[in-house]
């Protein structure tokens, strides 16, 4: 061991300069991020009898129920697309979003022992919570695409649009996840509020009905404002990218949702960094 200090590892902690969000540090802890993601995935499917099959069973079951209600009992007009395909394309994305937000929001609280005992950038926890759903998401998304292709509704090159929609969804999730995690650590009320918000958002966003249906209800002026809600354009855009015959969301609405997602993400990170210091006192 050399007597000279390794200069790269000097850490200064100074009360006059409180720490802020630090991208480089986040990068240093990426191994922890991967490990936490793996932990969440393994714990979720360990000791379940059918394991990963649950990933497919869940959306398929929901697809059947929604098809029964909104295609057989009530007829929601969805163009030429078969309703099971239509609802599956929406559900797969909605599930990633709702589970990601729920898990991210609880991440600080659920890992309280860790937060109280070990130092690491706390943002890793909501990040890991969101990313631990990624595997499930990719599997079900792939399944949906195969299903669409099998029925002859695969839209070709347009499928690449999934990447853009996914990026928008992740930005929204990061923002909401950061807000949710920091607020839940401080106010347990959030544990009750977030499921309620999700339920509301589920009906406000076009998961079970096509986006165009809202045009009649809202009128041409208000219609584009629907882009302010998270997931509105994501669901509609995803459906356009997954299924032949589904229209894309209008451009103004898309721009509006990119704007609102960016604001959500920036404000979320800002609030998280601000609260990070006081997690110790409220957990």
């Amino acid at each position: 061991m050399s007597a000279q200090p390794p200069a790269t590892f000097v850490v200064e902690i100074n009360a006059d300069h409180p720490r802020t969000l630090n991208g480089r540090e986040l990068l240093q802890f990426r191994e922890l991020l991967w490990t936490l993601i793996w932990r969440d995935i393994r714990v979720r499917y360990q000791q379940t009898v059918i394991g990963v099959l649950w990933v497919f069973l869940q959306p398929l079951l929901l697809m059947l129920i929604y098809t029964l209600v909104f295609s057989v009992m009530v007829r929601v007009p969805v163009g030429d697309t078969p309703y099971p395909l239509f609802i599956l394309a929406g559900l797969v994305n909605w599930t990633f979003f709702s589970q990601g937000w729920t898990r991210a929001s609880q991440s600080i609280l659920n890992n309280a022992p860790l937060v109280l005992k070990v130092y690491f950038p706390r943002l890793i926890l909501p990040l890991a919570a969101i990313l631990s759903n990624l595997l499930d998401y990719l599997l079900t998304l792939g399944f949906t695409l195969v299903f669409a292709a099998a029925l002859g509704y695969w839209p070709g090159v347009r499928t690449l649009g999934i990447v853009a929609c996914f990026a928008l969804m992740v930005v929204q999730l990061l923002g909401l996840g950061a807000w949710g995690a920091a607020l839940t650590a401080r106010y347990r009320d959030m544990n009750l509020l977030i499921p309620l918000l999700l339920q509301t958002l589920f009906y406000l966003t076009p998961v079970i009905y096509p986006l165009e249906l809202a045009q009649d209800a809202l009128g041409a002026d208000l219609y584009n404002l629907a882009g302010l809600f998270p997931m509105t354009t994501v669901i509609s855009g995803m459906r356009w990218a997954i299924l032949e015959g589904q229209p894309p969301p209008p451009w103004p609405m898309l721009l509006l949702s990119v704007l609102s997602a960016s604001l959500l993400c920036i404000s979320g990170f800002w609030y998280f960094a601000r609260s990070e210091q006081s997690f110790m006192d409220v957990l």
């Binding site: 200090p5 390794p6 590892f9 000097v10 850490v11 200064e12 902690i13 100074n14 009360a15 006059d16 409180p18 720490r19 109280l116 005992k117 070990v118 130092y119 210091q277 110790m280």
Partner: peptide, 21 residues
């Protein structure tokens, strides 16, 4: 170990820190 932030004063660490709290 940086779990708490100090109210005042400073700490300088040379080398990585492993904690077994």
């Amino acid at each position: 170990s940086r779990i708490y932030a100090p109210t005042s004063g400073r700490i300088r660490l040379r080398g990585r820190l492993g904690s077994l709290l």
